[in-house]
Design a protein around this nucleic acid. Sequence first.
RNA 1: CGCGGGGUAGAGCAGCGGUAGCUCGUCAGGCUCAUAACCUGAAGAUCGCCGGUUCGAUUCCGGCCCCCGCAACCA
Length: 487
Amino acid sequence: MSKPFYITTTLPYVNAKPHIGHAVEFIRADSIARWKKLCGFDVFFNTGTDEHGLKIYQKAEQAHMDPQAYVDKAAAEFKELLPMLGVSPDANFIRTTDPHHIKAAQEFWRIVDKNGYIYKKNYSVKYCVGCELEKTESELVDGKCPLHPLQDLELINEENYFFKFSAFQKPLLDLYEKGGPILGKSKLPFVIPESRQKEIRAFVERGLEDFSISRLKSKMPWGIAVPGDESQVMYVWFDALVNYVSAVGWPDDSFKKWCVDTGGMVQYCGKDNLRQQSAMWQAMLLAAGLPSSQNIIINGFVTADGGVKMSKSLGNTIDPLTLVEEFGTDAMRYYCLRELSPFEDSPCTPERFKDAYNANLANGLGNLVSRVMKMAETNGVKALNGEVKLPDAYETGLSEYNLKKSMDAIWDLIAESDKLIQTKQPFRLMKSNIPERTEGRACIETLLGNIYMIGIALKPFMPDTSKAILDCVDNNNMPAAPLFLRK
RNA sequence: CGCGGGGUAGAGCAGCGGUAGCUCGUCAGGCUCAUAACCUGAAGAUCGCCGGUUCGAUUCCGGCCCCCGCAACCA
């Protein structure tokens, strides 16, 4: 029986179109999922869409659409993106409007309620008469609606259900203290990178406030009904976050394979989700008596040049689909895995993408495969069979969820091979006398070994390219067409 | 004194106590197996500022300046 492994992305809210940040998360999580599969694990890889909430409801209204029809369309856009990014076809795609998820969310609520962590309380919301909308603190400028700064906000009181987040300060701190899985002599932090764990720990240490988990159905009709109270629907937290367990069958016992036997789920998310995933969701799991996650990996943001935030109004956004169409799926994966910082913010522009593509895929990887295979083909040199020992940095990078480190290890091999060709000049040796030819042959065999290793190492990251390289070595011929054409 | 991250060659990053490194770009040379690709070398940095610890600090400590997120219900 192979050991199980469970990894999940966050579910994008279908309020907006897929952006490059989503692509980064899908691609990285997919790479880990593929790697674990190659290591012999039985892998469950989860992603999907978050589809409830007022914003969706309003968008559907604007479009004169039924909310369900609206989210069906929006979810399809995300689902269609996955194959474009090379995400494994066997990835699970959960939608928070799935009947099973709705039942699970309600069951989750009942259990947490039964355990005494849900109560009703007065909740005051700020309402802008001008916009006819409720406003959150982060939407306000100097305590006023930026669109109607002359009007005062009205305070509206309503009864909502609250979650006793405050009861989980100590358990959460213990969870962070306990950390993640053992790795060699060291231990991974619970939240990766460590700087993010520090950040969330500081937040929890400051003290936690209970948060509201329901809305009046009369004001927000598009949501999951609160069990035992027809007048309320669930707010996002007890709806969307529960997908991580509903996706693997919970409340059915089958979930244990993925949440218990694995040592916990591994979660990928953006840094805007630090709090939700590593504090709120973990507290909810504890409240429901469910096992904690194993690791939470926090990605940085993709920015425009100079670290400027991408936004539609600035017109500096990047459409992942456009890049895939121009450069291909594996080029997109390459960029997200190696050119973007694994944990910090990093810039992406079409120019940067193109530069990286030409330098490392066309001139680097693709060209190396061509030149080595040409020498092998014309001289009839075949690869030697032997075990492939991947570089240590490659392995540790993956184990630490630092995929850039693993990619760098592969590109070190490429540089090494280019250097070897230049210093040994096997193409010249092959034209000389017998003894030199033997040396040249040995050199080409070494190079074929390197290429083969690169092909193996690329499997989880760039599956199509990996296959193309391994095929070349197996068939002892040049690629039919350059792997990556210069742009 | 809200929290966190950052300021290192033209750009993007790594290093984190002992001749300052990588990638792209620029310039010169080499090679011809390869996708005008590849290899070598050069130019280019007072490592944000001021103090302190130290034989020695980009690296540790303190202060200051500047940038960027977050500041809870944002899905």
